[in-house]
Design a binder for these strands. Sequence first.
DNA 1: CCCCATTAGTTGGTCGGCCAAGGTAAAATC
DNA 2: GATTTTACCTTGGCCGACCAACTAATGGGG
Lengths: 179, 179
Amino acid sequence: MTPETAQTRTPAQCAAVPSAVLDGPVSHAISRVSRLHRIVAGRLLRDLGLHPGQEFLMMHLWDSGAVRQSELIKAVGLDPSTVTKMLQRLEQSGHVRRRPDPADRRASLVEVTEASCGLFTEVSRAWGELERQTLDGLDDAERAELGRLLGKVEGSLCTAVARGGDAECTTALKGPIDC
Amino acid sequence: MTPETAQTRTPAQCAAVPSAVLDGPVSHAISRVSRLHRIVAGRLLRDLGLHPGQEFLMMHLWDSGAVRQSELIKAVGLDPSTVTKMLQRLEQSGHVRRRPDPADRRASLVEVTEASCGLFTEVSRAWGELERQTLDGLDDAERAELGRLLGKVEGSLCTAVARGGDAECTTALKGPIDC
DNA sequence: CCCCATTAGTTGGTCGGCCAAGGTAAAATC
DNA sequence: GATTTTACCTTGGCCGACCAACTAATGGGG
């Protein structure tokens, strides 16, 4: 940081200050860890015929039974359009079924198919394996501490997002911090 | 976890066990934090005319001057095709210039344009702001601890990725852990 | 009762990101 | 020196994810 020392440098001099790409900021650690985490998750999930991210939706549906799509959207905290398209694909691959809500003609109810219930066990195991590989090398105290710190960071980012986007916190998962 | 208790439940009974979507696993905390982090980063970067992820590439280029594209790819640890397409867009928007490497006719050298150097300061400031918002609410000790733990997790995931993907660690950023 | 604001979902577009396959050039091997 | 192998990059395809704009239905206030 302290970018005041740099001020529109020439291309050659842009290399002068290393600008801390590698070390420092926790932000970059988060980005890198997240990417690696996603890759490992993708590998574990591929064998189950799911794309990374879908398992999150499925888990919510397995948990909650038939739900209004809007409820699901609020629960996972994703963009409505994202959920719509994911559900279209999950429906096409037979994991999910959608039908109109009799009580509200614009809403639709989403639920898991019987065929998909066999996947539940495998996804659970994959998540366990993912967690295991992620936390390999951390003792119990460190794991707890990491969870606690991530919770606080999530809270901070949550309020930051809320401040900018005027709406309430996107991560509607009522996690450790409700904001 | 302990998925043995579940075994192909009916759709109705899939809701029986909450399956720990919300709480527990650090994995989900990572996913959520990462998403929020990306959103905040996107907001900060949008004003600069950059899309999230591009700033990472640019920072590397500002740091290293003219580089072989393959070097850049190794440095950021992304898929070659991803970098190719990002560079095409960055070139079209005038932030980056590419020319063939005289020493190797299949390689190309990438460098930052003069016009883009003005962005450097702003991106640095945006990163600082991002870091500030991310770590808001954590004291110095917690920040250090979080960095340390994320480093360890990165190491674990790194080796996990390497094990499955046979190649060496993708995150070639010689970070805290070299794997 | 009608109009209007709100809510529910969808579509289109763009980007980051991955994989798989391909084409060209350099390097290694024979 | 010719052939195989490897490296460098590109293209196409797909998915997650965002935003913006749109349709359609609900519900509240004049």
